[in-house]
Design a protein around this nucleic acid. Structure first.
Lengths: 236, 236
DNA sequence: CCAGAAAGTTAGCAGCTACTAACTTTCATC
DNA sequence: GATGAAAGTTAGTAGCTGCTAACTTTCTGG
């Protein structure tokens, strides 16, 4: 079952040119997490990485050091981590895998959009590039996943524009739902019940004072949603 | 990305009733390997496990002890390991996953039958039972995989009868190819070129003396194959 | 039966990834 | 600018999985 080529320590000065080095599941998750945090501009803070991965901050320091040793991140002590070019390439590869997997599972194996995330999360570390490209081809190379998130291209580029959320909408304004987080199945189910999914149009009818709940119109239904929910629904 | 429930040591006296405990990739591979070795009747010898997994015998002793601690194998010191009921169930679950994955990849994603093994080998540790059952359903619950190997049922039973190989055939006898090993892509490609695959009929035309090469007729072609190859092709 | 070979085990080491506890640095606020 | 809180790091521990080296047990063939 292994076909295992011993993965020896195999140190090198410049940490190998570019040919995707074998990384552990964990290392790949760190890279993805750092990528997502970094999208907000700043270096990824230890505590944020720890919180997203549900591990202790102390554990992050160690792993980040290992990633730095492999040339995947740059660290400034007490200041957080940033992906290197190679790190970013790898992070985007994982995200591409994740989103293609989600798309495939939803359209070809009838997974619910609220349940795919977890499955894709495990599979993304096990699939070969060949399999991913076969899935992408079978799907006709989709540009977005079932949650509306853009799928990075095989060459490592993405169109990942920053979108407004329902929470940013001015009262009375309409917008089309573009995307929502895939992380929380319960939230997705809830939104699904309200008819809120990528593609539908909605209008912000009212906003209670002091960061209070919002009233949105979807079709001819009205729903009252909390601000936390409103922040998870991206519109265009 | 983790949705990680901390996997605490969590010791128990009887090692949990039956609800599939989380195992590492390695542990799962050991179970599969032991299962396959045990099919020959004897307890699985340390050296054999080591050879199949391409690791040192010393490493096997340690892992086998851990598997025993978890109630998955029984060990008699210096005598080898045997699967417990739970261990066997788990091994068969992995084999089911592997074979359904191979079937799915070949029929739905156009993988060559010589290349699927490795992909399935990685995926089998990452797929959920739900995904496997969806794939099985999509394929119409096949009984055998693309190499002719029987797919264990979801309830953990298999019809795994011992078959003769081409090497066992008497000169002049015909038989239908039932199955072949999925392990060696080069061998599979070679057999494919000879037109030898599950379902085709062949006849043993001649057998050179002293364990020498065999001449087989496939359709109206004749091929001379070595005994090592002949032992890998199962017939019925 | 007994000696050498083969098989198997233990001991000690290393790297990974996580933990807690204790310490250091940085930040925010007065 | 000092100071306490927050953030981050190090040190030490633990389990997993692999390794090699050295030792023990079992087998095999004279």
């Amino acid at each position: 079952m292994p076909s295992a080529k011993r993965t020896k320590p195999m140190r090198r000065g410049i940490a190998s040119g570019s040919a995707a080095v074998a990384l552990t599941r964990q290392a790949e998750d760190y890279l993805k997490t750092i990528y997502e945090i970094e999208r907000n501009g700043d270096a990824a803070a230890t505590t944020l990485i720890a919180a997203r991965l549900h591990i202790a901050p102390a554990s992050v320091s160690g792993m980040v050091r290992r990633l730095a040793r492999q040339g995947l991140v740059e660290v400034e002590r007490y200041r957080g981590a940033r992906l290197t070019i190679r790190g970013r390439r790898r992070a985007l590869q994982m995200i591409r895998r994740h989103r293609i997997l989600e798309s495939y599972l939803v359209t070809r194996l009838h997974f619910g959009w609220d349940g795919v995330h977890e499955e894709a999360e495990r599979l993304e570390h096990a699939v070969s590039p060949d399999l991913i490209e076969r899935m992408a081809a079978a799907l006709g190379h989709p540009a977005v996943d079932p949650h509306g998130a853009p799928i990075p291209r095989a060459d490592g580029t993405v169109d990942d524009m920053r979108l407004r959320t329902v929470g940013d909408l001015a009262v009375g304004r309409s917008a089309r739902v573009a995307r929502m987080s895939d992380r929380d199945p319960a939230l997705l189910r809830y939104l699904g019940e309200l008819g809120i999914r990528p593609g539908v149009s909605l209008r912000l009818v009212d906003r209670a004072p002091f960061e209070g709940p919002l009233t949105v119109a979807v079709g001819r239904m009205r729903h009252i949603i909390g601000t936390a929910v409103a922040r998870q629904v991206y519109v265009r």
